[in-house]
Design a protein around this nucleic acid. Structure first.
Length: 503
RNA sequence: GGCGCUAUGGUGUAGUUGGUUAACACGCCGCCCUCUCAAGGCGGAGACCACGAGUUCGAGCCUCGUUAGCGCUACCA
């Protein structure tokens, strides 16, 4: 049976790239009838936080990605990892390196690597010319027993190469000469990433490792560890990376909230929409269909559909309307206006509740009205936030007037100040009050008053909703209802300060 | 520095064993619809398929080279 895992390190919120890795693992597990496991790689005690773990879990839940077994916390396995490294020394597959630890600050890691590489090349030294590599076991034991500090390094063979077939990138090979004797255990006894991953994957019975392409070359090292351990390596599938608009790394530090999955939840994305968008970043189905439900994604998913080139996540920090990828925004709007109303309502409810606009009657006596209102306004909304912002006037009398709308639809024609209350008086007598009857009343009134219907329609829109744009006005009348419509048409609020302005 | 990966319109992608006017979606522009804005319908601009050679009757697809971007190269993960 196929067993995959998502193994994030809890050093911040869930990055959208990581979320996409989780999604692909999950899709693969569900597609193949396998199991999806979760492992929190919290071995970096300095940077790992519980809050981060919680946020990752929340993010996965929001995306609808579940897992099948208990969560594994990598730090719990550290003693086992240490023991395994020590065992490799006994078996002669690893050795103690007594070289004093070099302190290297985060900032100059790259530089240090380049410098060291240059020195080595100049001296004609090989990656594995460690003086302790061939120290006799007795001597090594003696120095360790004497309390000397040592790191444990894997003894990489002199001749040979590692090979594996990546499900995405194809055949991969690497000469041993290009792989250094990597450190398995730090001199303070702390197991390192490559060792921990391999050991945990073995223990969890992982059959397929699906992860970011940044691990592609590290895979060779890990294969060496599998071999030293006498274990069969799993299959590997590396995913292309997600890049920032400048084709650089999409980082939490540089790009902020756009890379955090929780941002999408907080800014009104429907999870199904974001999941759908994420699935299309680096993967494509063999049909041209792009809108896919969770079930359809599972059905169509295959490793063969994963591309090899990194994908650019397009957004603009300067333009608020493009705070995230335009296609993601479009997809969210598409979901909001086309998903089954019953699935949308809980999200709208949560949004209205958060904005203190929710009323229990919406699920009870006013349920039919509520659904009708949501159906009407969702047609032109892009995020769930719109229900409490642009849509506020449908749920509350306390809404703001857009100054531009007031100016364009009301102040431009001063006569409206008298016409609208007069029209309201007419509306009061309309029975029943529907889109059709309100339209008939408005048009009749316009004709008598000798003005264009459009003038009254646009003015009504602003009086009733505070805005210049919105659904067909007669539908708005019907949804807002006679009582509220009349009251709003008579309101003096948009006219406050009007004289001062025009004189 | 070394090694590796990648390269199709602004973005995401499709291009099956080499033979097409290089396809789809988002975005952009225009028209229609119309009470506004969307949606929808119709149409359009935008790609010498990174560049240069080669193989071939024929190359986006194969080969080599170049360039660029990215990744790895840590007693980080």
């Amino acid at each position: 049976m196929i067993r995959v895992r998502f193994a994030p390190s809890p050093t911040g919120y869930l990055h959208i790239g990581a979320a996409r890795t989780a999604l692909f693992n999950w899709l693969y597990a569900r597609k193949t009838g396998g199991r999806m496991l979760l492992r929190i790689e919290d071995t970096d005690l300095q940077r790992s936080t519980e809050e981060s773990t919680r946020s990752i879990l929340e993010g996965l839940e929001w995306l609808g990605l579940d897992y099948d077994e208990e969560i594994v916390f990598q730090s719990d396995n550290a003693p086992k990892h240490r023991a395994a490294a020590l065992r490799l020394i006994e078996e002669g597959k690893a050795y103690r390196d007594f070289t004093p630890k070099e302190e290297r600050s985060d900032a100059n890691v790259k530089q240090g690597i380049a410098e060291r590489a240059r020195e080595h090349a100049a001296e004609g030294r090989d990656q594995r010319s460690n003086p302790y590599r061939d120290l006799s076991p007795e001597e090594s034991e003696r120095r360790a027993a004497a309390g000397e500090l040592f790191a444990v390094r894997l003894k990489v063979g002199r001749e040979g190469r590692t090979n594996f077939v990546d499900a995405v990138y194809g055949e991969q090979a690497r000469d041993y000469a290009e792989i250094e004797d990597l450190v398995l255990l730090r001199s303070d006894g702390h197991p390192l990433y490559n060792l921990s991953v391999v050991l945990d994957d073995i223990e969890m019975g992982i059959t397929d490792v699906i992860r970011g392409q940044d691990h592609l070359t590290n895979t060779h090292k890990q294969i060496l560890i599998y071999e030293a351990l006498g274990a069969e390596p799993p299959r590997f599938a590396h995913l292309p990376l997600i890049l920032a608009p400048n084709k650089g790394k999409l980082s939490k530090r540089k790009h902020g909230a756009v890379v955090s999955l929780t941002t999408y939840r907080d800014r009104g994305f429907v999870p199904a929409a974001f999941r759908n968008f994420l699935a299309l970043l680096g993967w494509s189905p063999d049909t041209e269909q792009e809108l896919m439900t969770k079930e359809e994604l599972v059905e169509k998913f295959s490793l063969a559909g994963i591309g090899r080139a990194n994908a650019v996540f397009n957004f603009s920090e300067a333009d608020p309307r493009q705070w995230t990828d335009a296609k993601a925004l479009w997809m969210n709007a598409e979901y909001i206006r086309t998903m089954p109303l019953a699935e949308l309502v809980p999200f709208v409810k949560a949004e209205l509740r958060a904005a203190k606009l929710w009323r229990e009657e919406y699920e009870d006596d006013d349920r039919a009205w509520f659904e009708r209102a949501v159906e009407l306004i969702r047609q032109r909304f892009h995020t769930l936030k719109d229900f409490s912002e642009q849509g506020r006037a449908y749920f509350s009398d306390d809404f703001d007037f857009d100054p531009a709308a007031v100016k364009k639809n009301l102040h431009k024609e001063p006569r409206l100040r008298e016409l609208l209350p007069a029209m309201a008086a007419r509306m009061e007598a309309v029975e029943p009050f529907t889109a059709e009857t309100s339209e008939a009343a408005l048009r009749a009134f316009a004709e008598e008053a000798g003005v264009k219907a459009g003038l009254l329609i646009n003015a009504s829109r602003t009086m009733l909703t505070g805005q210049a744009v919105g659904p067909s006005m007669f539908d708005v009348f019907a949804v807002i209802g006679r009582e509220r419509a009349v009251r709003r048409l008579q309101s003096g609020e948009p006219w406050f300060g009007f004289e001062a302005e025009t004189v």
